[in-house]
Design a protein around this nucleic acid. Structure first.
Lengths: 299, 299
DNA sequence: ATGTAAATATGAAAAAGTATCATTTTTTAT
DNA sequence: ATAAAAAATGATACTTTTTCATATTTACAT
C-alpha cells in the first residue's frame, strides 16, 4: 500500500515547501507527484493535503506520514549504504556511540589511524542517546558502542578493550594530594565535579561513596573534561577520572591522582556491536586499533 | 535503491523456504521474484543469495536484508493500518504498554467497555520492553503507556489517571497487621516480595526504605500478583501494593493493608501518548474509560 | 477590476518498469 | 538414467509511472 516513494515525496514537499520544488529536487515533474499522491489518497481513502491558497498544506494524516517518512527513510538510506559496503565498494561510515565521557580523548587518538587504514570509511560519533547507547545499537542508529558498563544481550557482543583505574584528581596544592589513598569519608568536605549524568551511572558514587554511605559536601556537574580538570587544578573541587587521562594532563596542569580506597577502583572500557557484524572488517579494524592505542596508554 | 518489495520478497522466501513457495504466497510467479532480486543484486553489486542445491541460501548480505525486512515491514503495515483509521474506517488496534504490574487487574476492567464502545478496534497489551516503555512509545511500538513514573519529554503527553496509596500488605496473622503504620525499620526482619524489576523502579525502596537506609531481611521477586498475595497471606513475606488492589483481595484472602510511614506513600498512575495523537478518538475513549474505572476503584 | 505569474490538477500518450510465459539449466531422488 | 523439483533466463505482454500539454486556482501588482 504505502511505498517508499510516497514517504519520499512527503518529505521532499516538507523540505522544499511546494510540490513543484519537491518535484524538481526529485528529478520528477510536478505532475508526477500530484498523480502519485492522488493515487495513494484514493487507495487509502484519506486526504493527505489540502490546497491552502496556491500552496499545499498537510492534513493531520499527512503530518503523520511525514513523521513516519522522517523516521523510516534514513533507515533505508542506511541499508543502501550497508549494501554497498557488502559489495566491497568500501565506501561508507562507522557510527560510533560514546557512553564514556573521558574516552573522548582516547577516541581522538584512534580516529586518525583508522581514517588512514580505511580510506573510504567515514567516522561519525554520537554522544547523546534518547534511550541509552544499547538502544541506539539495537536500533541501528550506531554500529559500535564505547561504554564502561556493558549489558549482556542476546544479539550483542561486548569486548573489553582496556583496563583502567578510576582515581581521584586533586590539585597539587590540596592536602588530599599528600595521601596515598582516599577513603570515602575524606570527600565529606569536598566539592565533587562530575559529568551531568545520573548518579547511578557514576562509579565514584556507585562503587565508592554509596557503599560507605558517604556523600561529598557539594556535587557540581560539568560537560567538558578540560573544564573539569581546570576547575580541579584551580582548587575548586575534585573529580574522578581514569588514571591515564590524568597522566596526560599532569605536565600541563598542577594535578595529582590519588587512589580511591585501599585497592583502587578498577574498571574496563568495552566496545559493543551487533553479533552479526562480527565479520565486518571496518568494525574489526577499528577495534584492533582501539586495543592497540589502549595498550600504549596503560604502559 | 532498495524498495519495500525487495524486503517483502526476502521475508517471504525466509518464511516459505523457497522462491517458488514465496512467489505463490505473494501471488507472483517464481520468475518475477528471480528477476526482481537479480536486478537488486545487479544494482547494489552484492549477491543476496546463493544456490545451495535446488534451494537458495541467503548470503551474509541477504541475512542482513532479511533482518531489516523483519524490522521495517511491520512498521509499514502499521502505517497502512493507521492511514485506514484516519480514513474513518475505524478498524485497527490500540497497542497498550504496561509498566505497572498491579495495574493489570485494573486494565482488565477497562478493556470490556472499550471493546463495546469501539467495536472495530482491537486491544493489544505489551508488558516487556527492550528499553523501557517510553522508548516503545517513541518508536511507535505502542500507542499508550500506563506507568506510575512518567518522564516529561517533548513530544509526549502524560495524564494522571488516578491517585493511589502504596501500602504494605501483610497477613492478618502477622504482628505487623496490628500497627496503624509501618516504619522502615519494621521491615528489617521481614521478607519483602516484589516484582522482578530493578530496585530503582520499586517505590518501596526508592520512597520508603532507601531514604531511611533500611533494608528488608530478604528480598524475593515474583512475576504474578496473585502468587505474591497468596505468599503474603501464607505468612511467607510482605509486599507493597496499591491499596485498592489489596481491597479487592481482602474478602478472598486473609490480608491486611498497613500504611507506609506516617503520611503514607502516595502515587499516581499516568497514561502517556504521543502529543500528535491527542485527537485520536480511540485513545481518548480509552483514557476516559480508564479514568472512569479509576474513580470507581478509589471510592 | 484585470492581467500576469505561480502554484496545483487533470487527461492522454509515451516511457519505463514488472510480471508472465515458455523454455533451459541445475540438482535431487528413485 | 530418468523424472521431478527448483531456480534462471529471454522475449513478450502488461501495468504503472512519468511526461507533456493544458486547465484551474490563487496571489499580487497595476
Amino acid at each position: 500500500m504505502i511505498e517508499k516513494i510516497h514517504l519520499n515525496i512527503l518529505r521532499e514537499i516538507d523540505r522544499q515547501g511546494s510540490v513543484t520544488a519537491a518535484a524538481s529536487s526529485l528529478n520528477l515533474t510536478q505532475s508526477a507527484l500530484s498523480h502519485s499522491i492522488k493515487k495513494l489518497e484514493h487507495q487509502s481513502g484519506t486526504c493527505l493535503w489540502l490546497k491552502d491558497g496556491r500552496q499545499i498544506r498537510l492534513t493531520e494524516a499527512g503530518e503523520y506520514l511525514l513523521e513516519q517518512a522522517n523516521r523510516l527513510l534514513p533507515q533505508f538510506e542506511r541499508i543502501d549504504e550497508t549494501l554497498r559496503q557488502f559489495a566491497g565498494n568500501e565506501k561508507g561510515s562507522l557510527r560510533i556511540g560514546m557512553e564514556c565521557h573521558p574516552c573522548y580523548q582516547w577516541l581522538l587518538k584512534v580516529v586518525p589511524p583508522f581514517l588512514t587504514q580505511s580510506p573510504g570509511i567515514d567516522i561519525d560519533v554520537k554522544q547523546r542517546f534518547q534511550f541509552g547507547g544499547m538502544a541506539a545499537l539495537f536500533n541501528y542508529d550506531i554500529d559500535l558502542l564505547i561504554t564502561p558498563d556493558p549489558i549482556q544481550k542476546d544479539r550483542m557482543v561486548f569486548e573489553a578493550v582496556f583496563p583502567y583505574e578510576l582515581v581521584l584528581v586533586v590539585s597539587t596544592t590540596s592536602p588530599l594530594g599528600a595521601l596515598h589513598q582516599i577513603m570515602p569519608a575524606d570527600l565529606s568536605d569536598q566539592t565533587l565535579l562530575t559529568y551531568p549524568v545520573e548518579t547511578a551511572r557514576l562509579d565514584i558514587f556507585q562503587q565508592f561513596l554509596l557503599p560507605a554511605k558517604c556523600m561529598p559536601r557539594h556535587h557540581k556537574t560539568l560537560e567538558a573534561t578540560d573544564i573539569i580538570l581546570h576547575m580541579v587544578a584551580a582548587g575548586r573541587g575534585v573529580a574522578a577520572m581514569p588514571r591515564w587521562l590524568v597522566s596526560e594532563y599532569t605536565d600541563k596542569l598542577p594535578l595529582k591522582a590519588v587512589r580511591l580506597g585501599k585497592n583502587g577502583v578498577h574498571k574496563h572500557i568495552y566496545v559493543g556491536y551487533r553479533k552479526q557484524e562480527q565479520q565486518n572488517r571496518h568494525l574489526q579494524t577499528f577495534i584492533s586499533l582501539a586495543k592497540n592505542q589502549a595498550s600504549q596508554l596503560t604502559c
